[in-house]
Simulated assay, not measured.
Amino acid sequence: MCSRRTRRLQHRLAGSALLTIVDADEPPLRVLFGEQPTQVVKALYDQRLRTWAGWEHVSLAAQG
């Protein structure tokens, strides 16, 4: 469990990151905050890319 001080710091850092995104010339449509979500999503998308690559021949055959 995080202390109140740690939570306040995390909220401040997240707010700063959000403002950086909002102020960007081309902000992303989606963003992840923190190490754990970033790691989980990378692993998930790596698996999806491998699956799609394995079935690419079927996808291309459907195009004709």
Rank of each mutant, 00 (worst) to 15 (best):
L60T: 10
G15F: 03
P27M: 05
E26A: 09
R7P: 02
R48K: 14
V40T: 11
S3T: 15
L60F: 06
V41M: 09
L60Y: 04
K42N: 12
E56P: 01
R7A: 15
G15C: 05
L19S: 00
A24M: 09
Q10W: 02
E26D: 13
L9M: 12
R8D: 14
L32T: 00
L49F: 07
A43N: 00
P28R: 03
E56M: 14
R4P: 08
Q10F: 08
L13T: 07
A53T: 11
S59H: 13
L9Y: 12
H57S: 15
A53K: 14
G15E: 04
D25K: 00
T51W: 13
L32N: 01
V40S: 12
K42A: 15
D25Y: 01
Q39I: 07
A17Y: 06
R8E: 14
K42Y: 11
R12K: 13
C2E: 15
R48V: 09
L60C: 07
G54N: 02
D25M: 00
A53G: 12
K42G: 11
A17E: 04
R30D: 07
L19F: 06
V40Y: 09
P28T: 01
A14H: 08
A43D: 02
I21S: 05
A17P: 04
E56Q: 11
W52H: 14
S3V: 15
S16M: 14
D23C: 11
R12P: 03
A62G: 07
A17S: 08
W55F: 13
D46A: 10
I21M: 08
S16T: 11
L18T: 06
A61V: 05
A53H: 08
T6S: 15
Q39F: 07
P28Y: 00
R30M: 09
H11Y: 13
S59N: 12
M1E: 15
V58C: 11
F33Q: 03
G54M: 00
E56A: 14
L9F: 10
A62E: 13
L29Q: 07
V22C: 08
R48I: 06
P27Y: 04
A17L: 04
G54W: 02
V40W: 05
D23Q: 04
R7D: 15
L18C: 10
R30C: 07
Y45S: 07
Q39C: 02
R50I: 08
D25I: 05
S16Q: 14
G34Y: 05
E35I: 01
A17N: 01
G15V: 05
L44S: 11
Y45R: 12
A14S: 05
P37Y: 00
F33E: 00
R48F: 11
W52I: 01
F33S: 06
L44F: 10
G15H: 08
D46R: 10
L18E: 02
A62V: 07
A17H: 09
W52D: 12
L9I: 14
G34D: 04
L13D: 08
Q63T: 06
T51S: 14
G34R: 01
G15D: 11
R12L: 13
Q39G: 01
V58P: 06
A53C: 14
A43C: 04
D46M: 07
V41I: 11
M1P: 15
Q36T: 10
V31C: 10
V31D: 03
A61L: 09
A53D: 08
L49K: 04
T6R: 13
G54V: 00
D23G: 02
T20G: 10
V22E: 09
T20H: 03
P27D: 02
A24R: 04
T20V: 06
A53N: 11
Q47C: 08
P27T: 06
T51G: 12
